[in-house]
């Protein structure tokens, strides 16, 4: 079913609108998946997404996988006492009835060991693993280095 949705998305949509696609698994909705262009493949890329849990059971994002990077990990940028660091996040809580954003300055997927440089306009799949809901694959839009997020006509979509 998810593969079908992904295939449909790939065939029907213009690449630039991919980040505005919504993929669902159980009570979870995954949308606004995007990344930033990188300069070369030697520096890590980044992965951002929004997850909404419409159910009544807490869940958590516990891992990501992608053919675009050899070592993808979940990180959290923490600014404490004026110092920014980004420790590894073992899991990112997705509480019942709430939305969680992986967004600049907070949780993010860190894409280390990039297979190739990420170029604006490219897209690549990322598979998210949830503690309870299982796995779901989303297609990620590579936006410009200076982008702040996808520009979806309907922000709520």
């Amino acid at each position: 079913m998810n593969h079908f949705l992904l295939a449909a998305a790939l065939t029907l949509s213009a690449p630039a609108a991919m980040a505005c696609e919504t993929v669902a698994i159980g009570d979870l909705t995954v949308e606004h998946a995007w990344s930033k262009a990188t300069i070369g493949a030697g520096r890590p890329g980044v992965f951002y997404v929004e997850i909404t849990n419409t159910g009544s059971t807490d869940d958590a994002l516990v891992g990501i996988a992608t053919p675009a990077a050899g070592m993808p990990m979940l990180h959290e940028t923490v600014v404490q006492d004026g110092i920014a660091s980004m420790p590894h996040a073992m899991s990112i809580p997705v509480p019942a009835g709430q939305s969680v954003q992986l967004s600049p300055g907070g949780y993010h997927g860190m894409l280390m060991g990039l297979t190739t440089a990420l170029k604006e306009g490219d897209s690549f799949p990322v598979t998210l693993t949830f503690e309870k809901a299982g796995e779901v694959t989303v297609n990620v839009d590579v936006l410009s280095l200076r982008a702040e997020g996808p520009d979806c006509a309907d922000a709520g979509q």
């Binding site: 930033k36 990188t38 520096r43 940028t77 600049p104 200076r146």
Partner: peptide, 17 residues
């Protein structure tokens, strides 16, 4: 540092703007 995909691009993008 340039291997900093989350925090550093945000600030450098603001500077560019």
């Amino acid at each position: 540092f340039t291997s900093c995909p989350d925090v550093c691009p945000t600030t450098l993008s603001e500077v560019a703007q």
